[in-house]
Amino acid sequence: MKAKQPTALGCLYDHYGSVVYGVALKVLQSQPEAEDLTQEIFLSLWQRPVDSAKHGHLMRYLIVMTRSRAIDKLRSHSRTLNLVQRWGQNVTAAPPAPTPVEQAVFNERSQQVRQALAQLSVQQRQAIELAYDAGLSQSEIAQQLNKPLGTVKSWTRQGLLKLKQLLRDSID
Rank of each mutant, 00 (worst) to 15 (best):
K2A: 10
A3I: 10
T7V: 14
A8D: 13
L9A: 15
G10V: 07
G10I: 08
L12M: 06
L12E: 04
D14K: 14
H15Y: 06
Y16K: 12
S18L: 12
V19L: 02
V19F: 01
V20Y: 03
V20K: 07
Y21F: 15
Y21M: 15
G22E: 03
V23I: 12
V23F: 04
L25W: 02
L25H: 08
V27C: 04
V27R: 13
A34I: 09
D36F: 00
L37R: 11
Q39K: 11
E40W: 07
E40M: 05
E40S: 10
F42P: 05
L43P: 00
L45A: 00
W46E: 08
Q47G: 05
Q47L: 13
S52K: 13
H55C: 13
H57W: 11
L58Q: 02
L58Y: 02
M59P: 00
Y61W: 09
Y61R: 07
L62W: 06
L62R: 10
L62A: 09
L62Y: 06
I63K: 06
V64C: 02
M65W: 10
T66N: 08
R67G: 01
S68C: 08
S68F: 10
R69D: 05
I71P: 01
D72F: 04
K73G: 09
L74M: 12
R75N: 14
H77W: 12
S78Q: 15
T80Y: 03
V84F: 08
Q85T: 14
Q85L: 13
R86M: 09
W87T: 15
W87Q: 12
W87M: 11
N90E: 14
T92V: 13
A93G: 11
A93R: 15
P100T: 13
P100K: 11
V101R: 07
A104N: 04
N107Q: 09
E108S: 03
R109W: 10
S110F: 03
Q111T: 14
V113D: 10
Q115F: 01
L117W: 02
L117Q: 06
L117K: 12
A118D: 12
A118E: 14
Q119F: 01
L120I: 11
S121W: 02
S121D: 03
V122D: 01
V122I: 08
Q123N: 10
Q124S: 10
Q124P: 00
R125S: 04
R125Y: 01
A127C: 06
I128V: 08
G135H: 03
G135I: 13
Q138S: 05
I141N: 05
I141Q: 10
A142Q: 06
A142M: 03
Q144G: 00
Q144I: 00
K147Q: 12
P148S: 04
L149R: 13
T151D: 01
V152N: 03
W155V: 06
R157E: 09
G159K: 00
L160E: 08
L160M: 14
L161Q: 14
L161G: 01
Q165D: 06
L166E: 04
L167K: 09
R168M: 14
R168Y: 11
